[in-house]
Amino acid sequence: MANLLWLQGGACSGNTMSFLNAEEPSACDLVTDFGINVLWQPSLGLELGDNVKAILEKCISGEIQLDIFVFEGSVVNAPDGTGNWNRFCGRPMKEWVRELSDAAQFVVGIGDCATYGGIPATAPNPSESQGLQFLKREHGGFLGADFTSKAGLPVINIPGCPAHPDWVTQILVAVATGRAGDLTLDEFQRPKTFFSSFTQTGCTRNMHFAYKVSTTAFGQRKGCLFYDLGCRGPMTHSPCNRILWNRVSSKTRAGMPCLGCTEPEFPFFDLAPGTVFKTQTMMGVPKDLPEGVDKKGYIKLTAAAKGAAPAWAEEDIFVV
């Protein structure tokens, strides 16, 4: 049995919606099979008004043991650091977040906003949003770089816009079943088990990536989205093509370029004119190259690949 409290700050509910798509285990399985007791959740909680406040206060006082505190959305500091743009149960949400994080055994940040600040923190960041322990790439965030929860771990970050439900439920089950010790986190405090491989790992367009065949416009039946359409799959850490979305697909499989939403810079280039769905180039070469590849190597690789490409690589492959 583990008590879980889930709150939303500067959020769109997208992670809650994604969470409800979970399959193994499903959101209901978490409760019925794994003994996770959901104290309250904004979209699902039974209580309203002062009865919600009473739950939060009991968690902070220790009257209710708070095992897992899940936070979705950014920590809103505006205006002028007061947090008044996001108040909840009569107080700035940021004050609840501070006290509940200190009271919790484990703190889990779900989605980009809780991890890095996310879309609300996009320039000019009108809501003065922060992630729990990061603002974009910068360590610290709202709780500070040194924060650890009662169990001795920093915030466990599950980024993504939204996070995949299985990334969420599997971490919750691991914590609830006493396997938190097996968790290893990377520099952004993301579970390595999910965020060491690339979005490109497992992508159905890998052959066209290798043979340098581009999807030059949307709606085509061949090619890789990296060369023209701004796909960030080779530079982004996520298991999107290992653990499929909604059981069936992924953005890159469907023909949508990866936006790099598990990385701190998302949305990249602050959505400046000319950057959306377009590969950024300099003198005919992509500015952002696959992770670990330098420009010289990239050019050599391209020349070799072009020379070696088989005839079938020039044909449609995802045919009707």
Binding site: K212, V213, S214, T216, A217, Y227, D228, G284, I299, T302, A303, K306, G307, A309, P310, A311, E314
Partner: peptide, 20 residues
């Protein structure tokens, strides 16, 4: 010595420029 041979849009077997 830039040339089609190494260009992204060149389809070698079709001797074709794939840029729409």
């Amino acid at each position: 010595e830039m040339r089609c041979q190494e260009c992204m849009y060149f389809l070698f077997h079709k001797r074709w420029c794939d840029l729409p």
